[in-house]
């Protein structure tokens, strides 16, 4: 589904992506949950932003469903993205924001279930500026999951969520996976990865350092615990 070849990105003198190659879900395989991990500054966010077309790589190709996506914009119609910091225009109300995003995408949306799921009904007419961080993140989730797309990218989806919302989120992700969607997640919560991820993509120094299942990682590093396994990867 996603094919990245020889991706280079420099910010000034700082090399962030250095000839990265990555293939996720080649044609024909099922969907799955991919955790993109790596220490701070390893290029996770840059990689995701390259996928989204927000960062323009210096070199390399990215194609989704066999089509190059560089300098394109319409492919994003089949892609849902949950940004890391949910900071919305303070003067809009929740419902206005939802309607606006619906309005911006030519796709059918199913927001009502999600609103009920996260208990946002009572906040619909509140200004976004007056919402707590957790509630904003819930709105953020609604905006992401209300469209039916083949690729879902979640950047730190758990931030600020209470345990109930977290459970709902996990259910949502699993449900999407069952529909055959490809889901990319970046997070620092290892238990979340342990529980959810089918595969781990580990980035270091702008390259893929490890790619494989959680079990494979544990086996390779000889660590029973994922956190230690990751720590072990970094320290090598």
């Amino acid at each position: 589904m996603i094919e990245i070849k020889n991706l280079h990105k420099k910010f000034g003198k700082l090399t962030v992506l250095d000839g990265l190659d990555l293939t996720i879900n080649p044609e024909g395989s099922e969907g799955g949950i991919f955790a993109i991990l790596g220490p701070n500054g390893s290029g996770k966010t840059t990689l995701i932003k390259c996928l989204l077309g927000m960062v323009i790589p210096n070199k390399g190709t990215i194609s989704i469903a066999k089509k190059s996506v560089l300098k394109k914009w319409d492919y994003r119609n089949n892609l849902n993205y949950l940004p890391q910091i949910a900071n919305f225009p303070a003067n809009l109300s929740v419902i206005e924001l939802i309607n606006m995003v619906k309005n911006l995408r030519p796709k059918e949306a199913h927001e009502q279930n999600l609103i009920d799921l996260f208990g946002l009904q009572e906040f619909l007419n509140k200004k976004l500026g007056n919402l707590s961080g957790g509630t904003k993140q819930k709105v953020n989730l609604v905006l992401t999951f209300m469209f039916d797309s083949d690729l879902i990218i979640l950047d730190e989806p758990t931030t600020g969520l209470d345990p109930i919302a977290l459970i709902h989120l996990k259910e949502l992700i699993v449900k999407e996976k069952e529909k055959g969607k490809t889901i990319l997640i970046t997070t620092h919560i290892m238990s979340f990865v342990d529980e959810m991820a089918d595969e781990i993509v580990f980035l270091l120094d702008g390259k893929i350092y490890f790619k494989g299942s959680v079990a494979k990682l544990k086996q390779q590093t000889n660590q029973p615990n994922l956190e230690h396994a990751i720590a072990n990867l970094i320290s090598k």
């Binding site: 989204l52 492919y75 994003r76 892609l79 900071n87 919305f88 995003v101 911006l104």
Partner: peptide, 11 residues
């Protein structure tokens, strides 16, 4: 941040 949200939309 809002702009980033928009950037991820098909626009």
């Amino acid at each position: 941040e809002f702009t980033e949200l928009l950037l991820a939309q098909p626009i």
